[in-house]
Nucleic acid binder design. Structure first.
Lengths: 149, 149
DNA sequence: TAGGAGTTAAGAATAAATCTTATTTGATGT
DNA sequence: ACATCAAATAAGATTTATTCTTAACTCCTA
């Protein structure tokens, strides 16, 4: 399930459906983001792709991610970090953000997903989605703290 | 309740407790943010304060907000907009974000606040807080759409 | 009310993202 | 396979957001 080939096929279909050319750059950027679990920034992706596409420009990464976002293939993750960070849209999930090292960890929360929104939101407008962001310090940073002391 | 004077008193006490001088700039920036309901950016605040403090520098607004954030007097709001946006910390609440005009609306959700986090988060590390971000299109933008058509 | 550490203003510097333009490339029809 | 051309890209300039540097200023304490 959620086999990479299947996801790539869906990606290609979506691009075609919107009249987008399947360029080498687009394929590689999407594939890299799919493989990634770290919610990379445009710059991180650009570095990671340097071997495969040595002439890839950073601007293309930014532009391509913006395009993918419009198609709903990619999501911009809600963080307050200076650089925007991205993920391939695969399923409904939420984020734990480590305030110390900036690491993002996905988690699922079906109970929350199935919950209705509070009354006060009934009148604000049209709701598109609801997401939880949990802040804290990750295990790795915690044990780092300990070992350092 | 939550009388401005009381909040300002707490603000002053917190500053003193941390050895921060109560400068005119800090007072005005905090007071403006308290009055504001729009979750302004540093630049917006700077403009709004131009009358009261004509020589206030934008850098001071940024620096001061960062200082207040460290003291827990101010929060940086979780949005993906290019400019960071801030709010005075008063109570636990969540945000509705209009994807069209960027407006932020606070809402309360006690049921969510009292809920425990899912099991998968028991092992990620130390949790500081959990917040909901709801995305959509606000009423105003919706009716604007209608009237325009 | 004078002294000094902490703050600020101003503008330079950095960082993130976007724009401009000339060149290249993927898709289409042949 | 090949020519065509709109769309996409690379490169570097530009804009926008934020932070740094430094000299001047101001709140607090004695």
């Amino acid at each position: 399930m959620n086999d990479t080939q299947q996801v790539m096929a869906h990606f290609e279909a979506t691009c075609r459906a919107h009249g987008l050319k399947l360029t080498h750059q687009r394929m590689e950027i999407y594939r890299m983001l799919l493989q990634s679990t770290e919610h990379p920034s445009a710059e991180t992706l650009h570095k990671q792709l340097a071997t495969r596409l040595p002439t890839l420009s950073l601007d293309t990464v930014y532009r391509t991610l913006a395009t993918f976002e419009e198609l709903g293939l990619v999501k911009r993750v809600e963080t307050m970090s200076s650089q925007a960070r991205f993920e391939a849209v695969i399923d409904q999930h939420h984020h734990f953000f480590c305030d110390q090292c900036g690491k993002l960890i996905d988690f699922h929360w079906h109970l929350f997903d199935s919950m209705g929104l509070p009354e006060s939101l009934q009148t604000v407008g049209r709701i598109r989605n609801k997401n939880v962001v949990v802040h804290g310090v990750c295990d790795q940073c915690l044990s780092g703290e300990k070992s350092r002391s």
